[in-house]
Amino acid sequence: MNKRPRIGLYTLVALSVVISFLPIVWLILTSLKNTAGIYAWPPQYWPDPFTFDNYVKIVTESPELLLYVLNSFIVALGCTLLTLTIGGLAGYALSRIKMRWGAVLMVFILAVSMFPPVSLLPSLFQNFLKLGLLNTYSGLIIAHAGLFLPFTVWMLASYFRTLPPEIEEAARMDGMGLMRIFLTIVIPLSWPGFVATGLIVFIFSWNEFPLALVLMTQNAMRTAPVGISLYPGEYAFPWETISTATVIAIIPILVITAIFQKQIVGGLTAGAGK
């Protein structure tokens, strides 16, 4: 109807988009410069020359940076699968089976999810040391599962509640047991819930820092956020390597977020609304 507010609107939107992308874009630009370009004065806003040397160098000279990404992938995937499996079962039981302590358990699970990760560290480090779980994928996978199971259980439980219970009751009349109902009826009908939850847990695990820092002490076992943060520089941070490694490490997350935007947003807001 009136023009002025639309211009204001687009200005604000453009501003938000620019601010959101600025650090990422600047980082990508940095990774595409040569070392001289990175440290040049006057500063180079656009890479000149435009080069993929930093990417080549990472593959040839610092393959451990790629290893970090692989580690992150293994841990995040393992954590997601484990969390969805056992969290799905728990969420199903808590949403559909009338249990005496069901409501208490849900609140308990919510309460423990608020523990600060650093407060777990002294004990976790000691126990993992004793159990030989330090520097193992399975160790960090279980640790991350512990952190993100509460979220998973709440998300999936609230998703299961949106399914009409009669289908499961019909299955029960047909002669299915609870496990069979869960596997053959509930899982196929809850795909969107599992996908949204799984994506968010994957992102959570990929991004987790304190536990990954403390429970993976060997360089070769570090996850991407930790490994890149601790990447040794001789006198200063080697920004050409850091920026390139960071771009590589965030690409999977960028891709996942871009593709599954709707599911992630839906999952997040549903989770927070509980």
Binding site: P164, E166, I167, E169, A170, A171, R172, M173, D174, G175, I185, P188, L189
Partner: peptide, 19 residues
Amino acid sequence: EPKDRGVAMVFQNYALYPH
């Protein structure tokens, strides 16, 4: 258990397996 009672039930919202 329901399955062993020799009864069958028809639900209001049909409760068919959609998949």
